[in-house]
Amino acid sequence: DHWEIRVGDITIHLKDVDEEIIRWVEEALRNGDDLEEIKRWVEEVLR
């Protein structure tokens, strides 16, 4: 699977990601969370 999350001008590409993570990231972006923080979290989860 390949996911693209778009929020404003930001697009995040994710592969082999659980839908729950996608929802979490979308929510975090909508809440204005720091992008670097989100990326770190996702990388942590995917490890």
Rank of each mutant, 00 (worst) to 15 (best):
W41E: 04
L35W: 07
I12G: 03
D9S: 11
E43L: 03
E19M: 15
E36P: 01
E44P: 00
G8A: 06
E20H: 14
D1I: 03
E44S: 03
D33F: 14
L14D: 01
E44L: 02
K39T: 05
V17P: 11
W3L: 12
V45G: 06
E4P: 07
R30W: 05
D34K: 12
H2F: 08
V42P: 00
V45K: 12
D18Q: 13
R40V: 02
D9R: 02
L46P: 00
V42Y: 13
N31Q: 12
R30P: 01
E37G: 11
E37A: 15
E4L: 07
E19D: 13
R30Y: 07
H2W: 15
V17C: 04
V42T: 01
L29S: 01
V45L: 11
E43W: 03
D33A: 15
I38G: 00
K39Y: 11
R40K: 13
L46H: 03
D33M: 15
D9I: 07
E37F: 14
D9Q: 08
L14N: 01
R23L: 06
D1R: 01
A28V: 11
E44Q: 11
R47E: 08
L14K: 04
L35K: 05
I10L: 09
H13K: 08
G32Y: 12
W41V: 11
D34G: 11
D34C: 11
D16S: 14
V7W: 11
V45F: 12
D16A: 09
E19W: 11
E20Y: 14
K39Q: 10
K15V: 11
L14Y: 05
A28Q: 10
T11C: 04
I10D: 04
D33S: 14
E27G: 06
H13Y: 06
V17G: 09
I21Y: 03
I5W: 01
K39R: 10
W3G: 07
D16P: 14
L14I: 09
W3H: 07
R47M: 02
A28D: 00
E27Q: 09
L29N: 01
D9H: 08
V45Q: 15
W24K: 10
L46T: 06
D16Y: 12
G32E: 08
A28R: 12
D1Q: 04
I12T: 02
E44C: 04
V17L: 10
V17Q: 06
E4H: 07
L14W: 08
K39E: 06
R40P: 00
D16H: 15
I10W: 07
R6Q: 07
W3C: 13
G32H: 14
W41F: 12
E44N: 08
W3N: 07
E4A: 02
R6T: 13
W41R: 15
V25L: 14
I10A: 12
W3I: 12
H13G: 07
E4Y: 06
V7F: 12
E19H: 15
D33L: 15
L35A: 08
L46C: 04
I10S: 06
G32N: 08
G8L: 09
E37Y: 15
E43K: 02
I12K: 03
V42S: 00
I38V: 09
W3R: 09
R6E: 10
E26D: 05
I22L: 13
D18Y: 15
L46A: 07
H2D: 11
R30H: 08
E44D: 12
D18E: 11
R47V: 12
K39W: 10
D34R: 15
D1L: 12
R23N: 06
K15F: 09
G32K: 10
D9Y: 01
E20Q: 15
V17K: 12
E36I: 09
R6S: 05
G32Q: 08
T11Q: 07
R47H: 10
N31R: 14
K15A: 10
V25M: 06
I38N: 00
V45E: 13
L35H: 05
K15E: 10
L29V: 08
N31V: 11
E4K: 01
T11H: 10
E44Y: 01
W24L: 11
I21G: 02
I5P: 02
V42L: 15
D33W: 15
E19T: 13
D9E: 08
R30Q: 08
E4V: 10
I5A: 04
R6F: 03
K15T: 11
L35C: 00
G32C: 09
D1M: 06
V25Q: 00
E27M: 04
I21L: 14
E44T: 03
R40F: 05
V7L: 09
I22R: 14
V25G: 00
E4W: 03
I38A: 01
T11M: 06
D34M: 15
E19G: 13
W24A: 10
G8N: 06
D16G: 14
D9T: 06
E36F: 05
W3M: 12
V25D: 00
R30E: 06
E20I: 14
L35D: 04
L46M: 12
V17N: 05
G32P: 09
E44M: 04
D1W: 01
D18A: 15
E4R: 01
E43Q: 02
L35N: 06
V25I: 09
K15I: 15
H13I: 15
D33R: 15
V17W: 11
A28E: 01
H2Q: 10
I21V: 08
L46E: 03
V25F: 07
E27Y: 01
N31I: 05
I21W: 08
V42I: 14
L29A: 02
H2V: 04
I38C: 03
R30K: 15
L29G: 00
R40N: 07
A28M: 13
V42R: 00
K39M: 13
E4Q: 05
R30M: 13
I38S: 00
R23K: 09
V17E: 04
L35V: 13
H13F: 09
H13R: 13
E37L: 12
R6K: 14
D34I: 15
D16M: 10
V25H: 00
E4F: 05
A28L: 10
E43Y: 02
I10P: 00
R47Y: 00
I22F: 13
N31Y: 07
D33T: 15
D34L: 15
I38K: 01
I10M: 09
E20M: 11
I38M: 03
G8T: 04
E19L: 11
E44W: 00
D18S: 15
D18C: 08
I10T: 12
D34Y: 15
I38W: 03
L14H: 03
I10N: 06
A28C: 02
D16N: 14
K39I: 12
W24S: 08
I12P: 01
V45Y: 13
D9G: 10
R6G: 07
E43G: 02
I10K: 12
E20N: 14
W24Q: 11
D33I: 15
V17I: 07
I12S: 02
W41T: 10
H2N: 09
E19R: 09
E27C: 02
H13T: 13
W24E: 04
E37H: 15
E43F: 01
T11I: 09
I12R: 01
E27R: 03
I12Q: 01
W3E: 05
L35P: 13
E36H: 11
V42E: 00
R30N: 08
I21T: 11
H13S: 12
L29I: 11
H2M: 09
G8F: 00
D9A: 09
R47D: 07
E44A: 09
E27W: 01
I22N: 03
R30V: 09
V17F: 10
I5M: 05
L14R: 05
T11S: 13
R23Y: 06
R23I: 05
D9V: 10
E19F: 09
D18W: 15
E37D: 14
H13V: 13
K39P: 02
E19P: 15
V7P: 01
E19S: 13
E27D: 12
D33V: 15
E43N: 02
V7H: 09
R6W: 01
L46G: 02
A28K: 14
I5F: 03
E37S: 15
H2L: 05
W3Y: 09
D9C: 02
I21K: 06
V25T: 01
I22T: 07
I22Y: 08
E37I: 11
D1V: 02
R6A: 06
D1N: 13
V25K: 00
D1S: 04
D18F: 15
L46W: 01
L14C: 06
R47G: 14
E20W: 15
D1H: 05
L35I: 14
R23F: 06
A28Y: 10
E27I: 09
W24I: 09
R30I: 09
E26N: 05
D34T: 15
I12M: 06
E27K: 10
R40I: 06
E19I: 13
I12A: 04
V42F: 12
H2G: 10
V25N: 00
E44G: 05
D33H: 14
W41Y: 15
D16C: 03
V45N: 10
E27L: 05
D9N: 07
I21P: 00
G32M: 12
K15W: 10
E37Q: 14
E20K: 14
H13E: 08
V42W: 12
G32S: 14
E43A: 01
R23G: 04
D16Q: 12
E36S: 09
I10Q: 09
R6M: 11
N31E: 04
V25P: 00
E43M: 02
L14S: 05
I10V: 11
E27N: 10
D18G: 14
R40L: 03
I21F: 08
R40M: 03
V17H: 07
E27V: 09
R47L: 03
R30S: 10
R23P: 01
D16R: 11
N31A: 08
D34S: 10
I12H: 03
T11D: 04
K15N: 09
D9W: 00
E19Q: 12
I21D: 01
K39F: 14
K15H: 14
D33P: 11
D1Y: 01
W41H: 15
I22H: 06
E20L: 14
V17T: 07
V45C: 03
D1E: 11
E36N: 08
K15G: 08
D18N: 14
G32F: 13
